[in-house]
Simulated assay, not measured.
Amino acid sequence: MATGRDPMTGRTLRAQITVDRPSFVLSAQFDVPAGDCLAILGPNGAGKSTILGALAGLVTMTGEIRIDDRIVDDGATHVPPEHRRIALLEQKPRLFPHLSVRENLAFGPRSQGRSRREARAIADAWLERIELPDVGGWRPTRLSGGQQQRVAIARALAAEPDVLLLDEPFAALDAESAPTIRRMLADELARTETTSVLVTHELSDAWQAASRCLVLDAGTVVEQTTPAALTASPRHPFTAALAGYSVVHGTWDGGALVVGDDVLLGIVDGDIAPGDAAFGIVVPQDVTLSATSGAIRSRVRALSVHSGRVRVESEAGLVAELPEGTAPPAAGERAWFTPVGMRVRAARAASTRSPVLVAADPPE
């Protein structure tokens, strides 16, 4: 089933981007090999969408952006967004409401000079690919939110971009449709060999689509590694929380993590000196909960259920996972939390880090 894209057409993206923002200077340097996906993660306001805007030509920057040997932005060249062959897909599908679904899918091929017949064939092939073969004549408003996002992804890929930028494309989806569309996107990126950059708040998105991750904090790259390494050994509190760890902040006193008036025992992981700001991480299964005694007494901030087990989140950052059948304390109550085998790492400020190159191969 043809979609208009020839095989082996992935492009290599190389970017060195600096953007002056009101609160910090964003600085990032990375390579994305042809047909690969780079996931960008970080707290709100860290600069993730700013990178996508710079790549798309929508944000003023200094540095260089290159696709294979073609420069699209540097001190002397600024290719307009519409001529970069870089597509941007956001949280909202932003389909053309006055066009049918088929016409939306045919828009990119038609803009590139394909005949009406060719563009229609490409659109119909994509409708088959996304399992919506019977909605081509519908207006987008007749589709559900999940169906609209499937069409938006297909429309972006039907235009055969050299690079596809994805700005949290699953954030507005419900829990039922999001996994299906995640799988669809990962499959289509691999099949079409489209180079992509994915901004997300979900580590599961990186696992599904990306081979490398770049983590931003206040405009600075603080981690760069594979999704597996990021999950097993996160080096930043944000990624530790994304990976499902309990995260607690304090000061290292040379033998324990001091959190307010409490002292938590931990195992040093990396270089850390007495008096350094530090954070501890521990899996929720290794945090015990008691009503009478423990390492730190904290108010219960929230309760959640995962696979039938109750997780109790404290205001101190520790999360305890209770055995099945155990009655949890209510939100707002105080309880004693005790981490076992907590790893402690230095919490170095992002502003002290240098830009990090994200290459095709893991660092030594």
Rank of each mutant, 00 (worst) to 15 (best):
4 G>V: 01
5 R>F: 02
5 R>A: 14
8 M>G: 15
12 T>I: 10
14 R>W: 01
28 A>Q: 09
29 Q>F: 00
38 L>G: 15
45 G>I: 06
54 A>C: 09
56 A>M: 09
59 V>P: 05
59 V>W: 00
60 T>K: 09
64 E>T: 12
68 D>W: 10
68 D>N: 15
70 R>Q: 15
71 I>R: 12
81 P>F: 02
82 E>L: 05
84 R>T: 14
85 R>F: 08
87 A>L: 09
91 Q>C: 05
98 H>M: 01
98 H>C: 03
99 L>P: 04
99 L>I: 01
102 R>T: 06
102 R>A: 12
105 L>E: 04
105 L>W: 01
106 A>M: 02
108 G>Q: 05
110 R>T: 11
111 S>D: 07
114 R>Y: 02
116 R>F: 00
118 E>A: 06
120 R>Q: 06
122 I>C: 06
125 A>I: 00
128 E>F: 00
131 E>P: 03
132 L>H: 10
136 G>L: 00
141 T>V: 09
143 L>T: 05
145 G>S: 08
146 G>I: 02
148 Q>H: 04
167 D>R: 10
167 D>K: 10
168 E>T: 07
172 A>P: 07
173 L>N: 11
174 D>L: 02
176 E>A: 11
178 A>N: 06
179 P>R: 05
180 T>A: 14
180 T>H: 14
181 I>D: 09
184 M>C: 10
185 L>N: 08
187 D>K: 12
193 E>R: 15
195 T>L: 10
196 S>A: 15
200 T>A: 06
200 T>C: 08
201 H>Q: 12
205 D>T: 10
216 L>R: 04
222 V>H: 01
222 V>Y: 01
227 P>I: 09
228 A>K: 12
230 L>Q: 12
236 H>C: 08
237 P>L: 02
243 A>C: 13
244 G>H: 06
255 G>E: 15
258 V>N: 11
264 L>S: 12
267 I>W: 08
268 V>W: 03
269 D>N: 13
272 I>D: 01
272 I>W: 02
274 P>A: 13
280 G>Q: 08
281 I>E: 02
282 V>N: 11
282 V>M: 13
283 V>E: 14
285 Q>G: 11
290 S>G: 13
291 A>C: 03
291 A>E: 13
298 S>D: 12
298 S>K: 06
306 H>M: 03
306 H>S: 08
306 H>N: 07
306 H>G: 00
307 S>E: 09
310 V>G: 04
310 V>N: 01
311 R>N: 10
313 E>T: 14
316 A>N: 14
321 E>H: 05
329 P>T: 05
330 A>P: 04
332 G>E: 00
334 R>Q: 09
335 A>N: 09
348 R>Q: 14
360 A>T: 11
361 D>S: 10
361 D>V: 09
364 E>C: 02
